[in-house]
Write a protein that binds this DNA or RNA. Structure first.
Length: 495
DNA sequence: CGTTTTTGACCAGCGC
DNA sequence: GCGCTGGTCAAAAACG
């Protein structure tokens, strides 16, 4: 292959990336062949030729670095050996030593570039995390202000305007995803805040319907407990006794649960001296290859990157449940279990996760075992399934970004309020999927990176407007990923 | 020897 | 009040 051919190949791959970031399907990074493309051609071609492309490429790697350690592995993997081997064969065949020298130099140069990009990547990562901290700080400050307003309420109009601004910023922070090391500094406060968010919302709604103060207090207390105990459950096929989530756990108990011959194990996070996070691990009674891991609580200590995914998902799930509770219907549902007597597809995310507020505590379940597009029993038929076209990753990301799950009821009066609620963090959902099943890493990493690059807040906020009918009899909203049964996703599997 | 796991006891919530 | 169940505690055992 001549150098010109190399450059043509580079250009092709660059076009692939551009296509991807403009929304078309793309296989970038989903195969071994393309893995190298990312390291060599893709980044290299974009770097130094176009200032805008520079930023683009850097942010690509930022996403990978931040969320998918496995993907980073091949970013950091030396490329010399394989390529040299290929080139040596090439040299033997064509006996063109000059060309070989040129190509070797090219490889060396690209390795240097890779090192430089890695350095820049770290810088961008740090900046990204710093920005998250700033957003969280602003959010915290505004929540405090909100508490003060509760004590000294002003006019309703004023409060509404401020609340809108605050919630918009909360959405921004939510999209970026909570940072657990900054959570560590104030996790308890955050939980308080989470409860207060719900309390504030409940109070507002109670006032609207003229409920008695005593009932309000009672509801607030119950809601606070509910929100503090919000859980995230991950269903994944695994022969191991635990899925790797980056945290250190200490087993403190084991019980036989009713209706399941497999024991349930109880674990406590040991990465912090008094970390309140716990998890339960149990095999599914119907299919013992399925491991069900349920997380509860917020870490109060810094987490390694590998653990951030699941931890931030927990936080996001709690926010999501709090958001859902902000409608009066949802409050009734959370406080009165009959609303959750039957499963219901999660609006916009029908095949990725389950929200189950059935007693005793609301739980969001990431089901990584179901065929994509399948629905759990008792699905609300009114919920549109965004996955019927079966377009693989594109469909998946459409589900992740397409609709907000916040509008659990169809109350037009409360929709305006719901528009300003914290959104479920699609990054966290995807990251949790990655943590549970690393084979999805390369596929979702690229997609997540594209989200970051595009700053796709619009995709989130715009779609919040979609109303979702809820007939009030459902209790579980379901979205699932299954790369095993989805050929589109399976084709992206990284070995 | 420190840490982790095991396992029976204990407690709280709930329904009857 | 009683029994059932889920969750936690804590002492003993196992492990590295």
């Amino acid at each position: 292959m001549r150098r010109d051919d190399h450059e043509n190949e580079h250009e092709k791959h660059s076009f692939k990336e551009v296509d991807f970031f403009h929304g078309s399907t793309c296989s970038r990074g989903f195969s071994e062949e393309d893995d190298h493309t990312i390291n060599n051609s893709g980044v290299q071609d974009g770097y130094g030729e176009d200032g805008n492309d520079d930023g683009l490429k850097l942010q690509i790697d930022t996403g990978l670095k931040l969320q998918v350690s496995r993907t980073i592995d091949f970013v950091e993997k030396p490329i010399v050996d394989d390529e040299v081997e290929v080139l040596e064969i090439h040299d033997d065949n064509q006996n063109n030593k000059d060309e070989l020298v040129v190509l070797r130099e090219e490889i060396v140069r690209k390795n240097v570039e890779n090192q430089r990009l890695k350095t820049l990547l770290n810088q961008v990562t740090n900046s990204y995390q710093a920005l998250q901290m700033q957003i969280s700080t602003v959010r915290q400050h505004q929540l405090d202000q909100n508490k003060s307003r509760k004590v000294h309420p002003t006019t309703e109009t004023q409060n509404d305007d401020e609340t809108i601004n605050e919630r918009t910023k909360q959405q921004m922070g939510q999209f970026l995803g909570p940072r657990d090391d900054e959570q560590s500094n104030r996790s308890h406060d955050q939980r308080e805040d989470g409860a207060n968010i719900g309390k504030s919302s409940i109070s507002t709604n109670m006032q609207r319907v003229g409920m008695a103060p005593a009932a309000t207090v009672e509801a607030e207390e119950a809601h606070e407990v509910t929100m503090r105990r919000a859980r995230v459950s991950v269903r994944a096929r695994s022969e191991a006794n635990m899925i790797s989530d980056g945290c250190q756990w200490r087993k403190y108990g084991q019980k036989m649960a009713k209706g399941n011959p497999c024991p349930r194990a109880y674990y406590r996070c040991t990465m912090g001296s008094s970390c309140p996070v716990r998890k339960q691990v149990q095999r599914c009674a119907e299919d013992r290859t399925i491991l069900i891991t349920t997380y509860e609580g917020h870490h109060n200590h810094p987490l390694p990157n590998a653990a951030v995914a699941m931890a931030s998902t927990t936080s996001s799930a709690a926010s999501m449940l709090i958001a859902g509770s902000k409608s009066s219907t949802a409050i009734d549902g959370l406080l009165n279990p009959p609303m959750f007597s039957q499963p219901t597809a999660l609006p916009g995310l029908p095949s990725l996760a389950t929200i189950s507020a059935s007693a005793p505590f609301p739980t969001i379940t990431l089901d990584l075992t179901r065929p994509q597009g399948s629905q759990p029993q008792g699905n609300n038929s009114n919920i549109p399934c965004a996955n019927t076209n079966g377009s693989g990753l594109a469909s998946l990301m459409q589900q992740l970004l397409g609709q907000s799950p916040n509008n659990f009821n169809g109350s037009s009066e409360l929709n305006r309020e719901n528009h300003n609620l914290p959104l479920i963090d699609p990054l966290s959902i995807a990251k949790a999927a990655l943590a549970a099943d690393p084979t999805l890493a390369s596929a979702l990493a690229a997609a997540i990176s594209s989200i970051i690059i595009k700053g796709n807040f619009e995709s989130l906020t715009n779609n919040v407007n979609s109303n979702v009918n809820n007939n009030g009899k459902g209790n579980e909203n379901v979205m699932q990923i299954d790369k095993d049964n989805n050929p589109d996703l399976s084709s992206f599997t990284q070995n």
